[in-house]
Amino acid sequence: MSMPFAEVIGDPIAQSKSPAIHRFWLEKLGIEADYRATRVTEDNLADYLAERQADPNWRGCNVTMPLKQAVQPYLASMEDPAASIGAVNTIYPAFDRVLAGTNTDAAGFLEPLTQRLRDTHLFRMARIIGAGGAARAIAHALAAQGFTLVLAARRTEQAEELIAQLPGTTEHHVVLLDHFAAPTDFAFDDRQGLLDLVVNASPLGMRGKDELAFDWSHAPPGAIAYDIVTDPLDTAFLQAARAAGHPTIDGLAMLIGQAAEAFRLFYGAPPPREHDAELRERLGA
């Protein structure tokens, strides 16, 4: 008899660390199940979902680039926050095995910022590189936390559309991707009581992709560099941030955080987060 399984889908997918994360937790909990990586393109997405929906052993899938918006027409329902974000990163068979979509990216992204977000700030600013599916989740999460956002994208119309859907009445801004590439002599004011982030929410810097051109003169002292790329884990973006004196958060923080929410849906149990340090060691091996 085949065992229950979940998986991650996207294109490309071979570099995904999600199978290692979920299998680590399954092993620790002694759950007889599997988690796989399956290459799925937009062209074969409909066939893939129909086949999996009919498989009683399939517990669901995580969705990565470039499918986070493409999957939506095939879902019977979209739960919040996926509905408000407009991007799905987790699909699971709900009652009668109809396909339901949700989004765990937002919660996963905020997890390593939890302590800082408990503090009160005079002002919160985030510069976000990218306007795709992951950026949508991140922008919504940060807007809900009272951040003023500057979105940098190759296609400004995509970023404008994203901003128009954000919650609240804060005025956000859009710039071209190369706005942050060249040095600036802008004089930042006193950073006391402020919280600043610079987030790479794009594939730039990923193995096989172009590097992200970001000059750290655009970031105020103390700004946190957060890169969601996981291959390589220590990106040139993060290395340059540390060299300029900025604290950093790597892509495993968000990846593990969002995977934890999905794991509960797929396998009906919370993952053993007390082993996070060991998991990071395994992923870095």
Rank of each mutant, 00 (worst) to 15 (best):
D96P: 06
R273L: 11
D80P: 15
W58P: 10
A159K: 05
Q158D: 13
D210Q: 14
L142R: 06
R59C: 13
Q115E: 15
P4M: 15
S77D: 15
E211W: 01
P232C: 04
P183Q: 09
A240L: 04
T156P: 09
A100R: 13
I9L: 08
P183T: 05
W25D: 15
G245S: 07
H173L: 00
T235C: 02
S16P: 08
Q145A: 15
P247A: 07
E42N: 12
R124L: 04
I256R: 03
F95K: 15
I21V: 12
A126G: 06
D210R: 12
H121M: 07
R280W: 07
T114G: 11
T170R: 14
C61R: 10
Y35L: 12
P272L: 14
A159T: 03
F5W: 11
A241C: 02
A50C: 05
G10R: 15
A219F: 02
D55A: 01
Q239L: 10
E171T: 14
L176R: 14
Q145S: 14
S84T: 07
F186L: 11
F214W: 09
G108S: 13
F237T: 02
D43P: 00
S217N: 02
P232R: 13
A50K: 08
V150T: 15
V199Y: 04
A164T: 01
A159R: 04
A159N: 05
E51Y: 07
R116I: 10
E27F: 10
H179R: 04
F109W: 09
A131Y: 05
T170Q: 13
D190C: 03
G30A: 11
A87W: 10
A262Q: 07
V40G: 05
E160F: 01
Y226M: 01
A46T: 15
I85D: 09
A181Q: 04
A152K: 03
Y226K: 00
A137M: 08
T64N: 09
P4L: 15
R242A: 02
A253Y: 03
P19G: 13
L142S: 04
G168N: 01
H172P: 03
A225W: 04
D231Y: 08
T170G: 12
A277K: 05
L252R: 06
S2L: 05
D250M: 00
A37H: 07
N89H: 06
W216G: 01
Q72T: 14
P93T: 09
R155L: 07
M206F: 10
E161C: 13
Q239E: 01
D234A: 10
P81E: 00
G130I: 06
G132V: 06
G193R: 08
V198M: 08
I228D: 01
M206S: 03
R97C: 02
E42M: 07
V229E: 04
A50S: 06
D250I: 03
K68V: 00
Q239A: 03
L177F: 08
D11Q: 12
P203G: 02
N62I: 12
F237M: 03
L197Y: 02
Y226F: 06
A50F: 00
A134I: 08
V8R: 10
A213H: 06
A137D: 11
T230N: 08
Q69A: 13
R116P: 10
P19D: 06
L176P: 09
P81T: 11
W58D: 00
T169A: 14
R124Q: 05
Y35E: 14
D210L: 15
E27S: 14
V8M: 12
A87E: 12
A83R: 13
H218L: 01
Q192I: 08
P270R: 02
V229D: 04
L194R: 13
